[in-house]
Each structure stands twice: as structure tokens, then as C-alpha cells.
Write a protein that binds this DNA or RNA. Structure first.
Lengths: 230, 230
DNA sequence: GTCAAAATGAACTGGCCAGTTCAATCTATC
DNA sequence: GATAGATTGAACTGGCCAGTTCATTTTGAC
């Protein structure tokens, strides 16, 4: 309706469904569940209102599909970021900084942030969604990360008793400043600030978990000086 | 209305205002801003609807007052918890565990959690509230905590370059498991689990920031064994 | 006891929205 | 080009709710 000529919604396709979910994703993320209007979603999808009810039952069902979609996308992004995890621990700190930066970028990603906001907002109305998203997303990422950390520990580069906990703490250290920096994902993040936060998180992580190098001076952790901008 | 006999709302007092804010706090926390109904708030406060509009302008104004109230309470609780921070660093780990547990209890507190949920949910509608609450709450706590940490560092018990960052990371390590454990504050937390999470956070914090004691055996940190359930 | 200010309740307005209905139109396929 | 199924627009129902009005009652102070 808003632009009847654009080929983005080819009017009559069976992928109306995708258009609907995409539009619903945007509108829910923008306005929240309660304030989102089906009419607005229909308009934004370039679709008639009854079509929505044909494809996906009602508002609640639509919302569940949307959350599942965002969760799947965010999870895929995060797991992809973990692929860059160092197996070769030459210059472990730099590798961790790199993978940490990718994880942090996943964290401040617009859709990830929207997902977190929606979960917080609607946990009263949809208590089950929280556990479902947790299981399908962060828990998998934590497991994957824990496996990578365990390999490094096993090879002697890190000293870790509980890899799951270490993985959670790694993420916690990486992301603790990000909500404030991005205003819960509603404003863009300065890449430099993001990198500084990541470097700080990796630094503390290595302080806690790096195995001291074989040289007889384990008291001063290796390569920490150049990572502190101020 | 619901209980016309109770002396909690003495009908006709000027503290109607407090009753209104209290009820609004509960209803907003329970239902969110959009779904909360002024009629319900009025009923729950034992007050007529026009009274709400007399005391506090409209729904939006009421919401802002409510958030200010929760933020102030949570902040006060947190700062009080920080009073127990160790100045005497005998058995630093145990002291940090204690103060960490109090901080974690503040974090999972019903009102703190509700505040976080409401901020996440309504940051689109009330973008200013996020920064306001941040400034009035967590930032003050971080400053206070940083001061305490700096004293310990200055006395040689911790090795900290940036106390503010260390304070943020301390809190991040303490709280990283809590949202999942408490389902964003919507279900009670097992005190044992809470303590275990705190002990784990403090352990990693000390690994990263504790200055090694003068004794020659710093590798096995004291009192860590009993804190690992699995 | 009197009186003014505050509180009450009940009704009312205007607006928004989920979900439905239906006749007309489009689309793909054969 | 005929047909079945999807799509459309538009109107409609029923419900919820913010905010207002007003005549009546309650309250506290004097």
C-alpha cells in the first residue's frame, strides 16, 4: 500500500509469509508486543490483514514465530562468530580479542538487542519463551565456547576447572559495558569503544585464566601493557 | 474497594499519593506500561480513578514517578549493601563473598528486576529514562565500589589499574548467571545457587586481581575447592 | 457544628485494536 | 481460457482503555 510499485513484495507470492514475519519482526521490535498493531504489520508487509490470519493464526502466534526467527538468526550469527576461535594459540590474546570482538558485535546486533528487549518486556505474558530462547541460543553458544576453552586448557594455555563457567564469565566480561553503551541496543555503538570494552574484558579473562608461561617469572602476566589505552 | 476495612489506606488521607504510587509500581511491574490499566491501579490502591489524575497527571507521569521511586529504593539498597565492604582485608575472599552475596541479592530483588524489565520494555517509549536511571543507580554503585576496590589496591591487597572497570567487572562476574537463574526476576532464586554463583564470581575476580600473598605458594587459591558442585 | 478541600463513583467520550466476514479480484496451473 | 485457491479491501463487531465530568459524600481543620 505504501509503495504499490516496488517489486519487493511481488503481490500474490507464497512468500507472503516471509514478508509478514519480516514486517512483524520490525514492528514488534519497534513497538513491543502490546502496542504493535496487526494493521501496521499488514501495511508494512504489503499484505492484507486477513492474509496474516490465514498464514499465522493470531497476534500471539505471530509473535512466537517472530521470536523463534530472531532467536535462530542471532544464534546462527553467534555460532558463526565462534568459528573464528583460536585453535592455534600463537598470540592467544590477539586471537581472543578478535573472537571477542565478533561476539560483542553479535551482542549489540540490532536483532539480538531487540530479542532481549522483547523477552524482558513480555516474560510476564510469555514465560515459556524465555527458557526456549535461552536453550536455543545462549546456552548453545556457551557450550560451544566452553568446548573451545577446554581445548586450550587441555593444551596447557589456560587454567580452567569449569569450562562452562569460564565461558559464561568470558561473555560476561566482554559484554558488561555494552548495554549502557548501546542504550539496550537502541543507539549505534562507536566501534572504538566496542573494541576497548572487548580488550578490557579479554585482559581480565586472561589475568584470571591464562596459564603462566614456562619462563620462571610468572608473577607479571605476559603482554598486558599495550592493551590499556589510558 | 477490594478490602474496605483495612487501615492500610485510611480513606481520605493525603498519603493517597503513596498508595497510588505503590499500587502503580505493582501493576506496572506485573503488566508492563502498555497493558497496565489505570482502573486496575486505582482499584489496587483503594482509590477512585479521578484521584489519580488529581495527584499525578496522567499515565505517563505516573509511570515516571514510579520508575523514579523504584530506582531510588534499589539504589539505596545497593549502596547499603556496599557498606559491608571490607576495609580490613583479613580473609579478603570471605569478605568479598559476603558483600558479593548482598550485591547479588540486590540484583535479584523483585523491584530491581522489575525496574530492569520495565526499562528494557519501554526504552522505545521513554528513551530518557534509561540514562536517568543509569545515572541515579548503577553508576553511583559502580563509583562507590570502585572507591572501595581502590583502597584495597592501594593497600596492596589487589592489583588494579582501573578501579571503575574492575568494579564493573566484579559486578558482571557476580551477576552473569542471575538473569537465567531467576528468569529475569520472575521466579525465586535458590539461595544455595545464588551463593554458588557469587563464590564463582568472586573466585574469578580474585584470580584476576588478587595480589599474590608473600608466601611462595600462590598457585592453589585458598578455599576454592568446596565451591564447585559438579 | 461548619465549611472548604479532597475524594468518590458512575457515567460518558473518543479512540484504538484484534479478529471476522464477504464479495470481488488476482494467480498459477492445466 | 477455465478453474480452484489464495489474496484483497473494506466494513463491522466487540471490547478495552485513557481521560473527563459532575453531583454527592467524606474528611480534616477551625
Amino acid at each position: 500500500m505504501t509503495d504499490g510499485e516496488t517489486p519487493t513484495t511481488p503481490r500474490g507470492r507464497l512468500d507472503k509469509r516471509q514478508a509478514i514475519i519480516g514486517a512483524a519482526l520490525r514492528v514488534f521490535a519497534r513497538e513491543g508486543y502490546g502496542q504493535a498493531s496487526i494493521d501496521v504489520i499488514a501495511a508494512e508487509a504489503g499484505v492484507a490483514k486477513p492474509t496474516i490470519y490465514n498464514h499465522l493464526g493470531g497476534k500471539e502466534n505471530l509473535f512466537r514465530h517472530v521470536l523463534a526467527e530472531i532467536a535462530a538468526r542471532s544464534n546462527a550469527k553467534t555460532l558463526a562468530a565462534l568459528q573464528t576461535f583460536p585453535t592455534d594459540p600463537q598470540d592467544l590474546r590477539n586471537h581472543l580479542n578478535t573472537v571477542g570482538l565478533r561476539l560483542a558485535e553479535c551482542f549489540v546486533d540490532e536483532q539480538s538487542s531487540a530479542l532481549r528487549r522483547l523477552l524482558h518486556a513480555e516474560i510476564g505474558r510469555f514465560p515459556d519463551l524465555f527458557d526456549a530462547v535461552l536453550a536455543s541460543g545462549p546456552n548453545q553458544a556457551t557450550e560451544a565456547l566452553a568446548g573451545r576453552l577446554a581445548r586450550l586448557a587441555n593444551a596447557g594455555y589456560l587454567t580452567i576447572e569449569d569450562p562452562i563457567r569460564a565461558a559464561r564469565q568470558f561473555v560476561a566480561l566482554l559484554t558488561d559495558e555494552l548495554p549502557a553503551m548501546s542504550a539496550l541496543g537502541t543507539r549505534p555503538v562507536d566501534p572504538d569503544e566496542l573494541e576497548r570494552a572487548v580488550v578490557a574484558g579479554v585482559d581480565t579473562f586472561l589475568r584470571a585464566f591464562a596459564t603462566p608461561p614456562p619462563e620462571p617469572r610468572p608473577r607479571t602476566a605476559a603482554g598486558r601493557a599495550e592493551s590499556l589505552p589510558r
